[in-house]
Structures are given as C-alpha cells and as structure tokens.
Amino acid sequence: MLKMKGFRLRLLQFLLMILTVLLLLPMIQTFLYSFSSMEEMKAFMKTRGSYDESQWMAAHLIPDMVSLGQYYQILIADNTVLRLFVNSAMYASMILAGQAVIIPAMAFALSRFRFPGRNAIFFGIILLMLLPFQVTMVPNVLTLRTLGLTDTIWAVVLPMWFAPFYIFLIRQFMVGLPNELIEAAEMDGSGTLDTYLRVILPVSRPILGAAAALSFAESWNLVEQPLTYLAARQDLQPLSTVFNQLAGENTGFEFAGAALYILPALFVYLFFQEDILSGIQLTELK
C-alpha cells in the first residue's frame, strides 16, 4: 500500500479522529446521561426547547453525581420501559429464529442446486429486495388480513422471515464455495441434509454471523411495521417506537432506557464485528 507521509497523513488522521468522536458521541453521551439522577436530567431537559435569544441550553455532559436512580426507576420501580424492552426482545428473537431456519436453506437451494426456475426465483428475490417498505407493505397486509393476523405480533414477525436481502447476501457467499467441498462430503456418503448441516453451514459462518447481526440491527430498530400494523396496540409496541414520546414527556429516565436499548446492540456488534468484516470481504457482491 502506498503510505501517506508527514503532514498530509497527520491531517487526515486528525479529521478522521474528529469524525470518529462525532460518530461515537451519541452513544457515549447517552451512557453518561443515564448515570445522572432523575432530578438532574429533568432539570437539564427542561432547558431545551426555549426560543429565547438570550438563553442557551444548559451545558451538561458529565453527571454532577453518579446515580443509579434512572436504572432503579426503569428496572424496578416502573415497568413501562421494561415491558416495551421485552416486546423488542420478543420480536427480535422470533424474527431471527424464523430466519435461521428458512433463509440459509433457501440460499443453499439457490446456490448449490440446478433446477428449472432457479434463475427466475433469484431474479424475483432481487426485485423484492429493491422494493421499499411502502410498496411491500401492501401485499403483506392483504395476506395478513386474509389470515386474520392484523393487530397481532405475527403481522410484524412473519413477513420478516422471508427478508430477501439476507437470502441474497447468503446466496452470494455460498455460490463462491468450492465444489470439492460438497463432492468430498458426497464421497463419504453424506446425505444432502447432512452436508448442509455439517459442511455448508459451518464454512458459511462469517456470512451467517454477518447476516444475523444485520438482521438483529434491523429487528431492534423496528418502526414502520409496528406503527402501521399495530397502530391500535400500544401494549405490543417495541421500545424503538416510543423514544420520541419519552423525550417529549421529560420523564427523567429516558436516557437509562436508551442506554438499556443500546446495550444488546453493542454486544452484538462486539461479538459479530469480525464476521461482518470477513463475511462481506468473502462475498461476491455484484
């Protein structure tokens, strides 16, 4: 690699450092705020939204006194946030469980088998992948209504099981696997299901990890589906749809809620970071 030297490299590093700080600041700030006491947060949040030219919002970054008050409130005293958090966890785990069964299998079928209609199916999946939610919600709704599933959690979960992007992603990875891998397994007399479970899935680990992490990120940030399909069901909303409301109500514990919500995503990031990088690296994305 051509190395940049001296001043230009320093300048670039400096700019990237600022960008990195800006990118990470929202999370850092959220965690810092979550350890302020509720009174402190309420007082601070009250200073925003003022249109008085002579005044500024209070400058506040580090808690005056470290307190677990907010966490006590959301975890023990009041279960509003916790209930919504559990809803989110339920959606994410149900979506990922279904996808784990359906999507790699379909990617396997589309990459390692030759059968009539294969290309047509793959083309259809790419078309679906391009369509925004505004369009795909219509066919989803028509079927959900026919099955009587509107206003239930299945309205959010079921359509996600067949998310075309992850089929595409995993299929592109599996296409690149060497044929010898399968031939060697066949030679040993292994059946298709055996080969799939014991050879294909283990060697596809990076892309499966990447897809799982990306899908988790999507399921953890659900907005359109619950807002549309479950508009009438406040009790079934995931936590992701209510932060705007929490901020408006100035509850004093909104940042502990946000920190609690960021935490699982952070673990997923730390755990799957390498998979995402190598998974994308090894996938033929064309």
């Binding site: 929202p26 959220t30 990120a217 953890w220 907005v223 992701s240 932060f243 909104e254 960021i262 990031y269």
Partner: peptide, 9 residues
Amino acid sequence: LMPSSAVLM
C-alpha cells in the same frame, strides 16, 4: 448496528 431510535434524543 445501533438502534437509531435510542440516539434520537
């Protein structure tokens, strides 16, 4: 991978 819902505040 972060929920943008949580940083909107």
